[in-house]
Design a protein around this nucleic acid. Structure first.
Lengths: 338, 338
DNA sequence: TTGTATGCGTTATCAC
DNA sequence: GTGATAACGCATACAA
């Protein structure tokens, strides 16, 4: 095992290739971007030189001359859970299909997010910013003045396009199910969080389902969207502080933690209390009882975001309408279904 | 909702800032990289101009002039499961601490991986390549001739540094546990895969534990490292094709699928057959019985890879020794423990 | 089809 | 401390 590059890897430049092939750099350049614009004869010569010299164009030089970075930026708070990973996967796929690379920025551990986002803006053609990311409106719109910016699962704004999965309708459907199929009457929604706009829409659906049934919805209960948050709710139930017959959680981790806490306290699910989640992550299928939840096509969401960025960049106008992706209710046993 | 940039965002250049501040571009440049080398007076002027013009240096131009891209490349097969996400998280954190961005390449869906990796090599200072990635030795060493390349969880090579989590020892410990604590005697290892070098080391530990106990290890059973792979193994057991009293799976998903399949077939775990996994992903804690597995500090692995890349780049020689990270056996109920 | 020449926005090396 | 100015490696308009 040895250091790969003994200090100073030799990168061939377009000039060296041109000289080796006995042509001008313009021809080499054409060879890279549009090989069909160069005659078969020279094409071989140049290709041979490229192979022999192991030539790869210098990305920065390309970007500078061509005035485009061939890269999209994606800003995420973190990568915990399947949501962000799926989003990133779809985003990267679509970006790659457009010939763009993806530079990723995780903000969770950073001290100066604003600065990081600004810097990023200097290295990419456009940026997609996840809702949960803590960046000031000023910074975001400053960046947006330079390059296209879109947001994912964020508050709607007049100046920035927003993408999200559908929340309200699915939450309403889910709540109706609890209300009318299982006859539950003391439902509580857990997961109020300022930083997750998605949660707000979900609660809204929860409220509407109650209203249309002539019932009064309980105010939502604040909790971390984490297993710990769920365990804390379980404690409230165990202590008799909370006496619901069903808990609608803003995400799966919360629900999973709640399930674990309830089981530890000997409280039956769904018998004594029903539980639902949101995301349909892997553990939701494996826990007992299996978790009723809502599946979001997050990968597709990521794809669309990147596609839209490409539209923005290439001047195609496309739809500027709301970009909202449908979700799917996944009924399992934790809600009371057999 | 409106298109952010009406075709042609106005990016201020260093020249405009210089003019607005009444200084030369050299001073502006200094202002960016080392503000202390410019007098307090002009510093204010320049900073003011920067703020007013919303100036952010053009990344490509910087890279070209400074001869470094300030970015590391990470090549992963995909992002399914927690492993890659954790690796990426640690990698990004460490890279960011070094002032480098991360450009991510997912190869799973790409048709021409070699080409993609080559292109990437033109845009970053160094590349970390995951073992499972399907890239020819020629391509990799061609890239390695240009920029530093390290591999993660890959076969050892003479010319490329390799990072991985410890496999053999932990597998031996795990197998010993099954053999001696639970008295199991018909163990089988599932998950032979050419593309996952990690699995090989794990089987090796499995073999050694048998040898040192004077037992004959069964040959390993091929299977996809997925839930489906696990279900298929369960079918073999249900059909009486396989009659083991314990199954050591190469990863958790495999074990989880196996658990589900066994449960569906009415076969008791761990009573009739014990099951273990590898990775300790979330579902492992929630499944019943909870899965005995091995936890790998993957995030730390990612951090170290990025740190080493920085060393390589900055000429610090550091250790060229084997980069192997310790793992931790996590004993739960699926192996027979109470 | 091919070559020449200019510009892309910075950094860095010099002088001053 | 500050300012000219020469690279940096490539794309591209234009000319041949």
């Amino acid at each position: 095992m040895t250091t790969v590059r003994p200090r100073g890897g030799s990168r061939a430049t377009i000039y060296q290739v041109a000289e080796a092939a006995g042509v001008s750099i313009a021809t080499v350049s054409r060879m890279i971007s549009s090989p069909d614009k160069v005659s078969p004869g020279t094409r071989d010569k140049v290709q041979h030189a490229i192979d022999r010299l192991n030539y790869v164009p210098h990305g920065a030089a390309r970007s500078l001359a061509a005035r485009q970075q061939e890269a999209y930026g994606l800003v995420l708070p973190e990568l915990a859970g399947p949501y962000y990973a799926e989003l990133l996967t779809g985003f990267e796929q679509a970006a790659a299909e457009r010939g763009a690379g993806v530079v990723l920025l995780l903000t969770h551990d950073k001290e100066d997010v604003e600065r990081a986002v600004s810097r990023l803006a200097g290295r990419v053609d456009a940026i997609a910013l996840m809702g949960g990311v803590h960046a000031s409106v000023e910074t975001v719109s400053a960046v947006a003045r330079k390059i296209p910016v879109v947001r994912v699962a964020a508050e709607q704004t007049d100046e920035i396009e927003t993408f999200s999965t559908e929340n309200m309708e699915s939450a309403r459907e889910l709540t109706r199910h609890l209300l009318h199929v299982h006859g539950l009457r003391r439902l509580v929604f857990v997961g109020a969080t300022a930083t997750v706009p998605d949660a707000r829409g979900r609660y809204q659906g929860f409220v509407e389902a109650h209203r249309e049934a002539g019932l009064r919805p309980a105010p939502r209960l604040a909790a971390d969207l984490s297993e710990d948050g769920g365990r804390r709710v379980a404690e409230m139930v165990a202590d008799g502080l909370l006496s619901a017959d069903g808990v609608v959680c803003a995400n799966d981790e919360l629900a999973l933690g709640l399930l674990a806490g309830l089981a530890a306290a000997g409280i039956e699910v769904p018998g004594t209390i029903a539980v639902t989640g949101w995301d349909d992550q892997m553990a939701a299928r494996y826990v007992t009882p299996a978790l009723t939840t809502v599946r979001q096509p997050v990968r597709e969401l990521g794809r669309r975001v990147a596609d839209r960025i490409h539209e923005l960049l290439s001047g195609e106008n496309g739809s500027t309408a709301d970009h909202e992706i449908a979700t799917e209710l996944v009924v399992r046993r934790s809600c009371g279904c057999p």
